[in-house]
Design a binder for these strands. Structure first.
Length: 301
DNA sequence: AATGGCGCCTGAACGC
DNA sequence: TGCGTTCAGGCGCCAT
C-alpha cells in the first residue's frame, strides 16, 4: 500500500527549528521558543528576498519594521503576532510548510549568517541574531498592521473562533456553535468556527478520542457528546503541545509527521493498520478534498 | 447565513 | 533511470 510508507533512511540530523503542518501546538511551540530570543530586541535590519507569499508582503515592509523593538510575542489560533514598540504588529502565518529559524549570533566566531536559500523569504536581523522565515510552498502569510484594532489585522483575526484553552469557552457555548451547522463535524472542526487550532491531524485524533464518526452532521451531536468532543480537542492539543519540544528540534518529512506525533497518533496516516483500541483496520475517506482517518467501530454517528 | 468547491504551491513518493 | 502523476492541506475566496 502506498500509504503505509516506511522511510528507508534515518532522518537527517536535527539542526534547525522546523515543523511542517504547523497546527496550534506547533505554532505555540515556535512562539515559546522564539520569545526569549526576540523579546526586547531591536530589528536593526530587515532583508526581504521574496515577497509573494499567499498574502503578498505589505508595501514598505522592511522600512516599517526597521528600528522597532519587539514588545511581545503572542499567538492567536495559528498566527504568530509580533507586537512592536510603535504599536504595530507583524502577523506571521506558517501555512503548510513555513518555519521560523532563529540563528543566534556567535560572538566568538564573529556571527556568520547562513546563506539564504531559494525558499527563505525574509530575515529580521537583531543585535543578537537573525530570524529567518522559510516556506517552500508559500502557503504562509506575512501581514503588517498599524494596530490590532485596525485592518488588516482586525479583518484577519476577527472571525476566528475561540481559543481552545479560553476559559470562557464552556460546554454550552461550544454546543451552541456546533448546533447550527449541518456540515460534517470534521469540517466544522477544521473551519475553526467553534474552536480554533485543530488542523487535519488533530481534528482526526480528537474525533477518535471522542468516539465520534467524522461524517456526523454537527447539528446531530448531543450536548454530552459535544462536551466530550471539546474535552478531546483540548486533550489532543495539550498532549501535542507537550511533545512540541520534539517538533522544535526535529526535521519533518514531507508529511510533517516526525518526532513523537506519529507515534501517538491513533488514526492519522494509519489506513489499513489495526486500531490500537479494537483491532479493526483504520479507514481513510475524503471530506472536502481532505483525508480523514477514523475507526469504523470506535467512532459512532 | 451557511455551504461546498476551487486554487494556491512545492517536493516526496509512486508508477510505468 | 527518468519522467509524468498524485498527494499533502490551511485558508481566502467564490458562487450558490
Amino acid at each position: 500500500h502506498r500509504r503505509s510508507r516506511s522511510r528507508g533512511l534515518p532522518p537527517p540530523p536535527a539542526r534547525e527549528s522546523r515543523s511542517a503542518m504547523p497546527e496550534l501546538p506547533e505554532v505555540e511551540t515556535v512562539r515559546r521558543g522564539l520569545e526569549p530570543a526576540l523579546l526586547g530586541r531591536c530589528l536593526h535590519k530587515v532583508v526581504v528576498k521574496r515577497k509573494d507569499l499567499r498574502i503578498p508582503f505589505p508595501k514598505g515592509f522592511a522600512a516599517r519594521l526597521t528600528d522597532r523593538n519587539v514588545a511581545a510575542l503572542e499567538r492567536r489560533a495559528k498566527y504568530i503576532l509580533m507586537h512592536l514598540s510603535g504599536g504595530e504588529t507583524l502577523i506571521v502565518h506558517l501555512g503548510m510548510s513555513g518555519s521560523l529559524k532563529w540563528m543566534a549570533q556567535v560572538e566568538t566566531s564573529g556571527a556568520t549568517t547562513e546563506p539564504a536559500g531559494p525558499h527563505d523569504h525574509f530575515d529580521l536581523v537583531t543585535s543578537h541574531g537573525t530570524l529567518r522565515l522559510h516556506d517552500p510552498r508559500r502557503f504562509g502569510a506575512v501581514v503588517w498592521s498599524r494596530a490590532m484594532t485596525s485592518d488588516p489585522a482586525a479583518k484577519l483575526l476577527s472571525r476566528l473562533g475561540p481559543e481552545p484553552f479560553d476559559a470562557t469557552l464552556d460546554d454550552a457555548s461550544f454546543y451552541a456553535r456546533l448546533h447550527p451547522r449541518r456540515s460534517a463535524i470534521k469540517q466544522v472542526l477544521l473551519s475553526g468556527d467553534a474552536v480554533v487550532g485543530a488542523g487535519n491531524i488533530y481534528a482526526c485524533e480528537a474525533l477518535f478520542a471522542a468516539g465520534i464518526d467524522p461524517r456526523t452532521p454537527a447539528c446531530r451531536i448531543s450536548r454530552p457528546r459535544a462536551a466530550r468532543l471539546l474535552a478531546s480537542v483540548r486533550h489532543t492539543l495539550s498532549q501535542a503541545l507537550q511533545l512540541g519540544g520534539t517538533t522544535l528540534r526535529d526535521f519533518s518529512d514531507a508529511h510533517g509527521m516526525n518526532g513523537e506525533f506519529q507515534n501517538v497518533a491513533w488514526v492519522y496516516g494509519r489506513e489499513g493498520q489495526a486500531c490500537q483500541r479494537c483491532g479493526t483496520p483504520i479507514r481513510r475517506l475524503v471530506q472536502a478534498q481532505r483525508a480523514t482517518y477514523y475507526c469504523p467501530v470506535c467512532q459512532k454517528r
